[in-house]
């Protein structure tokens, strides 16, 4: 599977550092919830009915065993021992505490994962056939195109404030897996 380039790595680490600082300022009261809200949403942190929720991107639904183990570690360390996989091939943690959010993002960065652009009016995680590269009726593997779109859309300066969220799906089979 695709591995981060130095550029990807540096970008994700810098976003973790930036958000760590923002959380600290929220916790000491120098940022109000109104000021903090757009900042946390840029990092996939929602406020739900009972708690925060962190939505982590799983690009085109592809995951390595090492990444899956790290998700398990996060669930045990900072959540209630489980995670929720979503219809857009992401995972959501339903019970993180705000002070722990930077550490969680750091643990994700350790395995080349993040929560960037899982919220807000941006291009969201690109989804692809879950049978890509394996199914018999595929014209071509869609994942390289999905990865190209991921690189292009991540932090794209023109498309960080679209009128609304934007979702792209790609399939390599003319007949989609249901």
């Amino acid at each position: 599977m695709y591995s981060y380039s130095d550029f990807d790595e540096a970008f994700v680490r810098s976003r973790v550092a930036q958000f760590t600082d923002q959380v600290a300022r929220r916790l000491d009261g120098s940022l109000s919830e109104d000021e903090f809200r757009p900042l946390r949403l840029m990092n996939g942190l929602y406020l739900q009915l009972h708690a925060y929720m962190l939505r982590v991107a799983i690009p085109y639904g592809t995951l390595s065993p090492r990444q899956m183990r790290q998700l398990a570690f996060i669930a045990d360390t900072w959540d209630k021992g489980y995670g929720h996989f979503t219809t857009r091939q992401n995972i959501q943690f339903n019970w993180p505490k705000l002070p722990d959010a930077p550490a969680i993002l750091g643990a994700l960065a350790d395995v080349e994962m993040h929560a960037i652009q899982t919220s807000g009016n941006t291009v969201r995680n690109v989804t692809a056939d879950h049978f890509a590269g394996a199914t018999a009726d595929e014209i071509d593997d869609p994942r390289p195109y999905a990865e190209l779109l991921r690189q292009w859309s991540t932090d794209h300066p023109e498309f960080q404030f679209l009128p609304r969220k934007f979702k792209i799906a790609i399939t390599g089979s003319p007949v989609t897996a249901p």
Partner: peptide, 25 residues
């Protein structure tokens, strides 16, 4: 999925699945 299930799935992917995992919609 519980954390135990995630770890078991990761192990099984390594042992029997060429270390590839996908999440479906």
């Amino acid at each position: 999925a519980t954390s135990d299930q995630m770890r078991i799935i990761a192990d099984l992917a390594e042992r029997y699945g060429h270390s590839d995992l996908r999440i479906s919609h």
